[in-house]
């Protein structure tokens, strides 16, 4: 338990302070693509300086350390309750040390718990597999600014001329980019889910953010759509921070789940450039680090 807690504390620290390489690489390309001596270039240069500084000082990349989303995949019979207890301790400790901001607020009284612990925080997603050797723990810290520009469409949607087909999905996703402008701290990454019910659709759209930016969608149709969305979004001129410029999106990841005949949801989760996603594979008891992910 003590080993697990310490390992999770280190996972939180890394997630808060160190950007994943796949996102860093795309941000470097984005800086090269912008016109020099523009506010877009200023924004991207500041972003790069910030990434370096956060890593060096082991401090949060962004002060909004956001929703704490744990994705835990392990062997059958794993003890979820012990994991949750260790994770809660690690979260409270990380908050005390300033890796996380005090971010859990009572929705009725407005009182901040001060520890990031409370009803609904942090969030755990557990999955199991018969052949899982160790405990695969992934963490996303998703800030409120980008969470607030997430949106769910119910197709058909006559406001944007979107029917129940992939063309309609494309219209919905691009409308989400247009509505977000710079408010979600772009250039951002979209996690999209087509299908599901209202709750599972949003949840699955967030899971898409666990994919690396350079991976390929197993569906050729969706893979093509992911690339096309990024290319089109980057012609809109919204740019970093919405200052205008060439880079509006860094990536787009689309998943599908089945739906009811009556429902056709397209859910878009927007992730800011400060894409805090890290992972670790631990021994089944959580005490030993096998390898770091991302």
């Amino acid at each position: 338990m003590a080993g697990l807690k310490d390992n999770l504390l280190e996972l939180i620290r890394r997630t808060s302070a160190e950007m994943p390489d796949d996102v860093n690489r795309v941000l470097i390309d984005a800086l090269k693509a912008e016109e020099q001596r523009t506010t877009a270039e200023f924004a991207l240069k500041t972003i790069h300086a910030n990434i370096e500084l956060a890593k060096k000082k082991s401090q949060p990349i962004c002060q909004d350390t956001g929703s704490i989303l744990f994705y835990v995949h392990g062997p059958v019979g794993g003890d979820q309750l012990t994991f949750e207890e260790a994770a809660r301790e690690a979260v409270a400790e990380a908050t005390k040390r300033g890796f996380l901001r005090q971010n859990s607020v009572d929705s009725l009284t407005g009182k901040n718990s001060g520890t990031n612990l409370g009803p609904g925080t942090p969030v755990f997603h557990f999955t199991q597999a018969r052949d899982a050797a160790g405990l695969d723990v992934r963490l996303i810290l998703k800030g409120g600014g980008c969470e607030n520009v997430g949106v769910q469409y119910s197709l058909p949607d006559s406001r944007i001329g979107a029917d129940r087909d992939l063309k309609g999905c494309r219209r919905a996703i691009l409308d989400a980019v247009l509505q977000a402008q710079g408010k979600g701290c772009g250039p951002g990454v979209l996690g999209v889910c087509i299908g599901g019910d209202r709750a599972t659709s949003y949840a699955f759209s967030k899971e898409q953010l666990l994919r690396t930016l350079d991976d390929h969608n197993p569906s050729p149709e969706l893979d093509a759509l992911e690339h096309e969305i990024v290319a089109t979004a980057n012609q809109l001129g919204i740019g970093p921070m919405g200052f205008g410029g060439r880079t509006t999106l860094l990536g787009c990841k689309i998943g599908v789940v089945n739906r009811l005949p009556a429902s056709y949801f397209v859910s878009v989760s927007y992730m800011c450039w400060a894409f805090r996603r890290r992972g670790v594979v631990l021994s089944a008891d959580g005490g030993r680090i096998e390898k770091w992910l991302y």
């Binding site: 500041t46 002060q63 901001r101």
Partner: peptide, 30 residues
């Protein structure tokens, strides 16, 4: 407009925290 998410670059520009009010009432972030 400050660069969103650039919390470290901007914190470097803060040379001193001179004081705080409404801490009890609103909590630290507010």
């Amino acid at each position: 407009h400050a660069v969103g998410g650039a919390a470290q670059v901007l914190a470097e520009c803060i040379k001193k925290v001179r004081g705080v009010s409404m801490l009890e009432e609103f909590g630290s972030p507010e």
